[in-house]
Amino acid sequence: MKETSGNIYNRLAPWIIPALLLAGWQLFAMNESISGSILPPPLEVVQTGISMAASGDLWTHIYISFSRAIIGFVIGGGLGIIIGMLNGVYPFAEKHLDTTVQMLRNIPHLALIPLIILWFGVGEESKIVLVAIGVFFPIYINTYHGIRSVDKGLIEMGKVYRLSRWHLFSKIILPGALSSILVGIRYALGTMWVTLIVAETIAASSGIGYMSNNAREFMQLDIVVLAILLYAILGKAADSLAKLLEGKLLKWNPVYQKNE
């Protein structure tokens, strides 16, 4: 019995501080310590959320932002993993590609927004391209680094034991690099949201960023705050998903084994 109540507490513990913050916010808003024109009370934000959800507007915006994020992430992340592996495994590829990638990496990708808009317009492509560029570099760097830092002793062992090239890669190099690749993915998820928010705020006619920016023009503070909350929730959801993935893929690692 003791164990289960301990379990429940452990599950709830991370949410105590967010809950207290929300309660405090509501309290201060209700006794008017904070004016409604600076920060609307949370219940009002929730009500706005519910009514927007009922009308379907909210879902459209979320869906659009979400699909931009995913498509951009898959394209940029996929390229990052492929090129990172290529450069990690083949010295020839590294010699010819790494310098170029490192040069490009040092350009802040958000600085490309004007160029990207000129090239791709304000439609879907520009957002997807920006997200893809944003997530490419963290995933590339971590994949490359992960592969280069695989224990040389294990690779030598694999060779002595006559593993095929495919097995050498799939059983030694890739799993050895995986934890580093996953760090890159988690980091890139952060970059993904930042890029999307900026891109949608600057030039878009849909999506959460647009919804927020549009509300600002009409002084709809509740919607602005709602958008910010949505980003927090979506960001946390993405991170939890990555964590889940880590737990599944790295279950051999004692660090990721849950104490029972």
């Binding site: 002793g153 294990l154 062992m157 002595v160 059983k171 030694i172 799993p175 050895g176 995986l178 790295l250 051999w252 690692n253």
Partner: peptide, 12 residues
């Protein structure tokens, strides 16, 4: 070969 360290693959 048996090496000084076991060189087992921790993920297998």
């Amino acid at each position: 070969i048996m090496f000084q360290d076991a060189r087992l693959l921790p993920w297998l």
